[in-house]
Design a protein around this nucleic acid. Structure first.
Lengths: 338, 338
DNA sequence: ATGAAAGCGCTAACAA
DNA sequence: TTGTTAGCGCTTTCAT
């Protein structure tokens, strides 16, 4: 049996209330009493039971983080932002992977809520009606990170994907291309279908170009799928010469398909992708990118959640973070992006 | 106030014990009672409070995972292995980053134990005496994953790093090299200093070669540091022609340093690295690697932990997983590794 | 500044 | 098969 607050109280000849006060830094304790209690705690190796504390106080200082797949650099980086701010505010994190399955997402929300987390940060491809229902039932704040909430119902931290896609496409067009492709991850991800793709299309519209639907490629988000898709593409005479890509991994797949087939980037094809992880810098040529502020997305989400959990006044619970372009060698030198 | 077991009991005209039985799948409940209770649970939206349950049962079905940095692919992948098996056994995971700081590691251990986790999976560069002390005090099982325990005191899941390094080095030597380098992450990581480096040295010894200490490079484990180190190296007339590298990120740094300086891999330099993440496949030439079974390391650790938590008999709590070589283009074609 | 006592929501004997 | 009851280890009034 582990040491309890009661053992400490007895050993120090005080009541458990006093020990509780000492442990919680309550100022209403005579300094010498505090000292005495602290000494006993030290000697006995007393370690407060957070579960009991959680039951009594109705706060667990634990938050839930639900993520499609924490082993993907995208979410790993984002989660690290969450974790650092959580540490700063002394929260623990229960981290779970949903693998993008809606049933799992619902289950996990339910599960985390059952564990009495004080709040949740949720990442998903799409907030379905069922998810929405489930989230409404929650009695703790939930923040969406890197996730589109079409109804703008829940607190959300995001960046302007559509604008970035528009801007990137426009630059590609200004570089002289009229035949462009958009290679995306699954369109079940709202951000792909409703933001990036739309930005891509808007730039076309503005330039008086029409988007060729055959050049909107939906992949399964893997290197290999992108690689294969583009190898096929290279057999066409009318293959697009400029490519907007949804993320680094896909972009590298395309890049390698191009290079393995003896074409050149950026001479034959120019590429701009989203993300800019190490992968984008490690390949040659390095990839010009829309840098997604992943870490900050996480950090800001967590900061927002702390405010919500403390019921602090928040001016705005829909936050949009700035992005920037990182100019590298997958686009041509005098690129106006500079 | 949320619905409690008591509310359900009242509403269903049974005792809370019966509700508890239903919730916990205890077979000693008449089917129709069960049905009735289940209906009430459904209607009221009752969700068992895991904190209260934890206090009463002294089990939280939560484990702690302490990792240097979950945003690094190495640990992200390993953690995913842990997470999947944890899900399978219905455990939640509290995940924390130590950033390799010993004080944080001790703090986190203490913190997780306070949260009453049922077990811990711990990853660290080195198990110091203080850590050892702390771990001994724990009243729940702790499994080390991808972490060297020189004293062989704690349950551990690992692979044969030394043997892999030896074998890789030997192959490089068989490929005709006599001037080799070992580029490592920090030697504060026991596995680098006590396993990989030793394997590298043994192969030299066996071949009658002596290791040039100047060619044992300790980096800070970043792409950039490896890149810079190797750029300097390239200015020497006696630069090593074969390189064993501690992980993918460093290897890609070296690869790019070589290629950016117009040398060729594998013609001028051959490279074998540890890990083989996407990065190793994405670069050109792709990297010949010792594949570290990261996911399995995590999965097996978690499986071992479940056994320990259930006090099942375990034949052996020091597990060594097999590795394999992945032959790619950073070594020459007729490489005997095949 | 300190103590007494009533929960927090559940599990787990023990009874019935 | 079901109910009663005593905790689990703490926080939090309310007294003193």
């Amino acid at each position: 049996m582990a040491i309890t607050i009661y053992d400490v109280a007895e050993e120090a000849n005080v009541s458990m209330a006093t020990v509780s006060r000492v442990v919680n830094g309550n100022p209403n304790v005579k300094p010498e009493t505090r000292k005495k209690v602290l000494a006993v705690i030290e000697r006995l190796g007393y370690r407060p039971n957070a579960v009991a504390r959680g039951l009594a106080s109705k706060k667990t200082t634990t938050i839930g983080v639900i993520v499609p797949d924490a082993s993907k650099t995208f979410y790993a980086e984002l989660s690290r932002g969450i974790a650092d701010i959580a540490t700063m505010y002394e929260y623990n994190i229960i981290l779970s992977n949903s693998d993008k399955r809606q049933d799992r997402e619902v289950e996990l929300l339910e599960d985390h809520l059952g564990k009495q987390v004080d709040g949740i940060i949720f990442m998903s491809d799409s907030i379905t009606p069922q998810l929405r229902e489930e989230m409404r039932r929650a009695n703790v704040p939930i923040v969406l990170a890197g996730t589109l909430d079409a109804e703008k119902e829940f607190p959300t931290v995001n960046m302007e994907y559509e604008e970035a896609a528009y801007e990137a496409t426009k630059k590609l067009i200004e570089n002289g291309h009229s035949n462009l492709a958009f290679v995306s991850g699954p369109f079940t991800r709202d951000i792909n279908r409703l933001c990036k793709k739309v930005g891509f299309e808007k730039a076309h519209e503005e330039a008086g170009f029409t988007v060729n639907p055959e050049f909107i490629l939906e992949t399964d988000n893997t290197y290999d799928d992108a690689y294969n898709h583009w190898c096929e593409m290279l057999e066409r005479d009318d293959a697009p010469t400029a490519i907007l890509v949804s993320n680094d991994e896909l972009a590298v797949g395309i890049l390698n398909a191009i290079r393995d087939n003896k074409f050149s980037v950026p001479d034959d094809f120019e590429i701009i992708c989203f993300e800019h992880s190490l992968l984008a810098r490690a390949v040659r040529p390095q990839l010009t990118s829309v840098v997604i502020p992943l870490y900050d997305l996480g950090a800001v989400s967590m900061r927002l959640l702390t405010k919500l959990m403390n019921k602090e006044e928040t001016e705005e619970d829909k936050v949009t973070l700035p992005y920037r372009f990182e100019l590298r060698a997958s686009t041509k030198e005098k690129n106006p992006l500079a």
